[in-house]
């Protein structure tokens, strides 16, 4: 694949000078990576003064707009849990119609945020429809692997064996019985203009992807893994480390789909594990520090389950490697 235009590469220095559009004072948990995700995304906007955000119900929403306060310095709308892309379709339609009538001179960029609840489960229909209709928006799904806002219930993003309050760990059942949905591939299969996976740890990779997704004329989707210490049960200061390990174990392979060339490409942070497979860490290193997987290690170590988890990760990883081969 050839690179046509020089890519925007964010520098910390430049970002520090930019206005915060997702501001402090919001009430996410201390150390919540979803907040970092939102902040990074807003710093990566190509037209920060000309962007509208549509937001699905979830942690990021409830924590950022507790009336009469708001953390958003852009026009922002929350409507429901499962309809943020449909809501955005209407916002775009309004501007399109009014521009055609000479009542507006510009159609703002549209950014949609949701958690894995909407992005993987209840809102797939609305997102699928909005992509098929080719609305011009970037849909960022921050994946913290459960319905955290409502008290840590399992979602289609919850991995096998993970504890949640609806995939309890007991004598009979060791947590969630099934693997997570490959939702980014599902959206990529819609052939949007752009689709990618990302990690909150790899901030530059994520921000460049946001920029790309926003600049495309048409639908774009990014699924970004954002750990949650309330559910994953790691010390709250280790959020970024957990995100990093998810990439290093290849649990969270970072890749891009380009709608123009219809190709998948492995992103730089994951590429190193293709080049040198010995760098790929065993999944245990990611599982062990997380309380939601505690039963795989204590009171007795369950090698069978850990191995099963490793196999599932490896299968996915091999699949993504094949997909991104050129």
């Amino acid at each position: 694949m050839t690179q046509e235009t020089p890519q925007w590469r964010p520098k910390l220095k430049d970002i520090a000078d930019q206005e915060e559009l997702f501001t402090s004072g919001q009430r996410l948990c201390a150390g919540c990576p979803a907040g970092s995700m939102a902040r990074m995304a807003m710093h990566a906007l190509p037209r920060p003064k000309n962007t509208i955000v549509s937001q699905a119900t979830g942690c990021l929403e409830v924590a950022s707009t507790i009336y009469p306060y708001t953390a958003w310095r852009v026009p922002w709308m929350h409507s429901l849990f499962e309809n943020a892309p449909a809501n955005a379709s209407g916002i775009e339609a309004a501007y399109k119609a009014r521009k055609r009538q000479g009542l507006e001179d510009d159609i703002p960029d549209l950014l949609v945020f949701s958690g894995d609840g909407s992005g993987f489960d209840i809102g797939v229909q609305a997102a699928s429809g909005a992509i098929e209709r080719r609305h011009n928006f970037l849909y960022i799904i921050y994946d913290n692997q459960a319905y955290q806002n409502t008290g840590i219930q399992r979602s289609g993003a919850t991995p096998k064996y993970a504890w949640t309050t609806t995939s309890e760990v007991g004598k009979a059942v060791p947590g969630k019985p099934t693997w997570k949905k490959p939702i980014a591939l599902v959206y990529a299969a819609h052939d949007p203009e752009y689709c990618a996976t990302a990690s909150v740890y790899h901030w530059r990779d994520f921000m460049m992807k946001v920029r790309k997704g926003m600049e495309k004329q048409g639908p774009a989707v990014i699924v970004v893994l954002a750990p949650c210490h309330r559910n994953w049960r790691y010390p709250e200061e280790l959020g970024m480390k957990m995100a990093k390990l998810a990439v290093e174990t290849c649990f969270n392979p970072l890749w891009e789909y380009d709608g123009e060339t219809r190709t998948y490409t492995m992103s730089a942070p994951s590429m190193q594990f293709v080049k040198d497979p010995s760098k790929k860490k065993p999944i245990e290193e990611w599982l062990e520090p997380q309380g939601r997987f505690r039963h795989l290690f204590r009171p007795t170590r369950r090698d069978d389950l850990i191995q099963d988890f490793q196999n599932l990760v490896d299968e996915d990883w091999e699949f993504i490697k094949r997909l991104t081969e050129m």
Binding site: G90, I91, A93, A94, K96, R98, A126, S128, E132, R133
Partner: peptide, 23 residues
């Protein structure tokens, strides 16, 4: 602007978004 949505839930959701954008 006629948005041929994929469900009634999205129909009214799109109208809601459009209306909030002044349409």
């Amino acid at each position: 602007e006629f948005v041929r949505v994929e469900s009634e839930h999205s129909a009214l959701s799109a109208c809601l978004g459009a209306s909030a954008a002044g349409a």
